[in-house]
Design a protein around this nucleic acid. Structure first.
Lengths: 144, 144
DNA sequence: TATTGTTATACTCTATAACTATA
DNA sequence: TATAGTTATAGAGTATAACAATA
């Protein structure tokens, strides 16, 4: 394989992306904490606010072991943000679903995440379009 | 304050940035694990490979409490990657420094982080320049 | 037999509070 | 008295292994 040269420009962009990642992550944790949630809890609640999901599938999306999901859902359920439902097709499966309160919280949380939105306001529509296209090409085609 | 409109293009870019953040984070953890390090340990080792740093300053850079740094440095020190040195100017202060083995590991680790480099190879030099400028404007002027 | 979710265990990261040795 | 680092403690996320219920 061809060695990727690391010219100064590439290194600068890599560094900028690192900064974006750090800032995004910090803000996500901070906003989650504002709602009394950990980052992992906020991510799961965000997932479930889109659609009810089986425990095992949640683990896949989080890239962690299924055993960990039990505790995260336990804590969200204890606060009335999530509930476990049986799967009518397979009695082994439990489906976690956001309650109405959970969906409310998820929406507020999403609205509070200004990071990726306010800085973008600095850019014109055309520039945002360019940024979109460049990011898309960086990320390549990898539908999850 | 003016409400930030969230037009479809902005939302798309926000989503793309979220994907970049997730992928970057996952790869960082995975590469660290390949060297038997946790993400936090790898980040600290990376810092110390650039310059020896007092415990308190490490906590500031990690945005965590100083008490946590003790354990992280303990574990890195137990593996011979880091050492504690006294500060000649203030006997309360301990300065953590990467050993030669630690600097080696940090360099290998850095070289293994292909994420932000290989995808950029998809872009021309001019496009990387555009991306750099857009990211810089997004991030604004905030020297750490 | 294989799979789903859970439990039990151990490790790391995290914040808080109390302690020590310096300043 | 204030500060740097540590220790003690508790909560949370993580992986691994073993288990019950179901397929």
């Amino acid at each position: 394989m061809a060695t990727t040269r690391t010219d100064p420009l590439t290194l600068e962009v890599v560094d900028l992306i690192g900064t974006v990642v750090a800032r995004y992550h910090d803000e996500y944790e901070e906003v989650a904490a504002r709602y009394g949630l950990t980052g992992a809890q906020a991510r799961v609640l965000g997932l479930l606010s889109l659609e009810p999901t089986a425990m095992r599938r949640i683990a896949q999306k989080l890239k962690c072991e299924p055993s960990n999901v039990t505790g995260i859902i336990d804590r969200l359920e204890a606060r009335g943000l999530v509930e476990r439902r049986p799967d009518p097709d397979d009695r082994r499966v439990k489906i976690a679903a956001a309650t109405e309160k959970g969906r409310d919280t998820a929406r507020q949380l999403r609205d509070s995440l200004r990071f990726a939105r306010e800085p973008l306001a600095e850019l014109s529509a055309q520039e945002r379009g360019v940024l979109r296209d460049l990011l898309k090409r960086m990320l390549g085609e990898s539908p999850d």
